[in-house]
Design a binder for these strands. Sequence first.
DNA 1: CCCGAAACTGAAAATGATTATCGTTTTCAT
DNA 2: ATGAAAACGATAATCATTTTCAGTTTCGGG
Lengths: 139, 139
Amino acid sequence: MPYSTKQHQAVLRCLEARGENACTAAELAEDLRRAGCPVGLATIYRQLEKLEASGAVHKVNTEEGALYQFCGHQSQGHRDCFLLKCQRCGRIRHVDCVQLQGLYDHLEREHHFRIDPRGTLFSGVCDACAGEEADHGAQ
Amino acid sequence: MPYSTKQHQAVLRCLEARGENACTAAELAEDLRRAGCPVGLATIYRQLEKLEASGAVHKVNTEEGALYQFCGHQSQGHRDCFLLKCQRCGRIRHVDCVQLQGLYDHLEREHHFRIDPRGTLFSGVCDACAGEEADHGAQ
DNA sequence: CCCGAAACTGAAAATGATTATCGTTTTCAT
DNA sequence: ATGAAAACGATAATCATTTTCAGTTTCGGG
């Protein structure tokens, strides 16, 4: 059975503080070091693995490596929040929307596939970046 | 302007032959070697980059690296095909479903985010694996 | 047909994120 | 207080992907 360590708490606290602002393992290490509680990278990865398994954090795979973010004490059933990552600016947005639940239900009923909202990352272009694109002239 | 090379054609042909069966760059290299047309890994990556940019192939980021697959000569507007990856068996399924188009339209209209179906990978559990799980006893 | 610049190739080295190793330290039930 | 289980962290190892660089190929003029 797992032991409670100060590193575990520090990592969790740090992720919690970041809220929806997803970060990499390295950024987390930087945060912790600055907070006066340096934690080895290996340990951070180990903690992130556990936290993901426990459902406390989301892990999303991106081109440049994995991003992690606190997903709260929210219950298992929370299935109407999803992540949108802009291909241009790289920012990740959260959207809570019942419309999504409808799609998931449909997929489960009609296509026999149960979606795991954690781990699912929508890729696209956000408002701001779409605007910039238009400014420079459509291609 | 780009030159037409036999490596370029070989990579494209190989991806086309695989159809919906996505593969890694290394698997592609293996395929090509076996087909009697070995191509260096660096070149494969370079070709994949171009093919992705041109819209001829999808690239999806997974835990174990990127997967590529031919997405055909189909027009730009094709937005109702999406990819489901099973967390258990790793297989990637394609689903064509108008329900999805509805969600994308909603996201664009209400949440100002334009989804790029290429690059978006749904994570979940497929029918077969869900069944196996049940067999072993629910947890 | 021939030339040269631009584009492409592939072997090898570099990069960078993640994982494994391993000796040391911490936790906690007894 | 003890010791076995679990965790730590520095370092080395992996492994996918990129970069480098010295040749090779392509193709539009001449």
